[in-house]
Design a protein around this nucleic acid. Sequence first.
DNA 1: TAAGCGTGGCC
DNA 2: TGGCCAAGCTT
Length: 297
Amino acid sequence: MAAITSTPAPLLHSTVLDWYEANARDLPWRTADASPWAVMVSEFMLQQTPVKRVLPAYAAWLERWPTPADLAADAPGEAVRMWGRLGYPRRALRLHAAAVAITEQHGGRVPDDHAALLALPGVGEYTAAAVASFAFRQRHVVLDTNVRRVFARAVTGVEYPAQATTAAERRTATEYLPATAETAATWAVGVMELGALVCTARSPECGACPLRGHCAWQRAGRPPYEGPARRGQSYEGTDRQVRGKLLAVLRDAHGEVAQERLDAVWPEPVQRARALDGLVADGLAEPVAPGVYRLPQ
DNA sequence: TAAGCGTGGCC
DNA sequence: TGGCCAAGCTT
């Protein structure tokens, strides 16, 4: 293992835990009365969407659907509408499907078992570990983009992690995971918070970092990233942009939408048709008659 | 495995 | 200004 091993793990743990206690943001899904369902809703919304934009959507969502059964009883299209402009609306569909599965297969209670969580729609390795850890205080490796970046810097000594999660990363994170469940759960959220607030992607505040005396990247003089070019996210002119425009019309409509209103959002007919077909294939739009669409019922 | 999938804010 | 990034998942 890399240079950070010069620091005993218990010291590292208390360093991060102390920092977290003093600097943690006051987020609604972290309060003692946040239900497992609330934690799960927050995790779905936070997949690729910043905290600031999630906050109001999270509150409105739980106000309307305080339990999985409440959401399951409503139409998936309502979930898509409530999702608003959070982006990646398939997450809304999957959260609805997860609520149905929880209602039908788990007695309406979010399962506390990692494997059962992983089996739910829209729940991958990260989200399963996050819900099990944050909501049920279990011991899991919680490896998100923040944690990966902190380990890349502090342990490996490079500015950014690889594009895809590697077995070596998982091994490192496992080695540093505190032995006690409760401590591990706080460590997980603490490292994430450190990555989100201090060890940020573009302008890390190393001067304010509790790990600066233990950080391999700092010790190496903070060398810039040298790996292959990181994949960008083009958007302008893509099908994604067209899908977004089409779905915005469907979302804002009360019921059925005529083809002409969809046609108005994008001039190029081939791409427009492909995007609409994609929405239908994904279950985000529903044809009700030739040339008439709506959100899924 | 790598590409596809929204949206907005920041430097 | 515009590329980069944001608590990923699915195929």
